[in-house]
């Protein structure tokens, strides 16, 4: 009787786990499948490609690609423009061939990585000090800041879009590549700081005061305690906050689409993917392969840190 019950329980549990796994995975299976199909196979509902086709990945990663042919119309155009010097013609042709990449994945990947890590890192540093201040120190307005900070999320992204773009144009940031990078980084910080402050504040509050007091007795200053006591004791929470901020910047679409529009060299993966999607040819294998490649790095990053995530989020979401 008891054994029976246990077996049913185990099977039920197993099915539940399977369901959770499948539910999490199905879009990725779809993605993988379509990315490996030939275009004549897209109409088949089967997940298994009739014939595996890796050309989309090769194309995106620029493996074994032939040099782009010069179209007839471009060749004639240059030939029939007599005022051009040979050198000018050559440089135009060279530039054309250079632009051959349909989707320079590695470039977009580097951009995304750069944006996300920088934003997450700066945001983390600012949040450590801010969270320490609101959770451990006493001054007028401290309670107000502590509670008010999450209210920032009530302001939706659309509301911010036009005014923020306007400011960054007005102070001359949006005109240059560097300025655009700075504007976007600051915007990502605004979106991540509230949760960072909130989660870190809660973590810091859970560290016993006595440890810190002991440090003060030893002659540590506030700043020193932060570096030597608080940070080492909350590495797990710091990692969580970092990853959380990283994700926001890595995934962000709306602001990037407006701010980066003029700077193709700065495109992040999300806007590059969208641009690929709206280009009119039916290119599902390429879109899916690009989606796969966009997802993989974050997935690996997570696999590396996830061990520390769950256990160490400790009081991440706990109030007081």
């Amino acid at each position: 009787m008891v054994i029976h019950k246990n077996i049913f329980k185990s099977i039920g549990f197993f099915l539940l786990v399977m369901f959770i796994v499948l539910f999490s995975l199905f879009p990725f299976l779809q993605m993988l499948s379509t990315s490996l199909k030939h275009s004549w196979d897209w109409g088949n509902p089967s997940l298994i490609p009739a014939q595996v086709n890796t050309s989309a990945y090769k194309e995106l990663l620029n493996i074994g690609q032939d040099e782009k042919d010069l179209p007839e119309s471009v060749r004639i155009l240059l030939e029939e423009t007599p005022d051009l010097t040979e050198a000018q013609k050559e440089s135009i042709i060279a530039k054309f061939k250079d632009s051959g990449d349909i989707f320079p994945f590695m470039k977009y990947f580097r951009n995304s990585l750069a944006f996300a890590t920088t934003a997450a890192f700066i945001s983390l540093i600012i949040a450590i000090f801010g969270a320490y201040s609101i959770s451990r120190m006493k001054y007028r307005g401290q309670k107000l800041i502590q509670r008010g900070v999450l209210f920032v999320y009530m302001v939706g992204g659309i509301l911010l879009l036009i005014p923020l773009y306007k400011i960054s144009v007005a102070i001359g940031l949006a005109g240059t590549e560097q300025g655009t990078v700075v504007s976007l980084l600051i915007i990502y910080m605004v979106q991540t700081l509230p949760v960072s402050l909130y989660m870190l504040g809660n973590t810091f509050r859970s560290i016993p005061f006595s440890i810190e007091e002991a440090a003060f007795v030893e002659g540590y200053t506030r700043i020193q305690t932060i570096w030597k006591i608080i940070i080492p004791l909350s590495l797990g929470a710091l990692a969580t906050v970092f990853v959380y901020s990283f994700m926001i910047a890595w995934n962000e679409y709306l602001f990037a689409s407006v701010f980066l529009k003029s700077f193709k060299d700065l495109f992040t993966l999300p806007i590059a993917l969208k641009a690929l999607f709206v280009s009119k040819n039916a290119i599902w294998d390429r879109i899916m392969a690009a989606s796969m490649l966009t997802a993989i790095p974050v997935v690996i990053l997570f696999m590396l840190v996830q061990k520390y995530l769950a256990g160490n989020m400790s009081s991440g979401g706990v109030k007081e």
Binding site: P71, S73, V74, L77, L78, T81, L84, S91, I92, K95, F96, S99, G100, D101, I102, F103, S279
Partner: peptide, 13 residues
Amino acid sequence: SDRQATIQVLIDT
């Protein structure tokens, strides 16, 4: 992207 490249050639010229 291929159309962009062609228009860019016109611009470069």
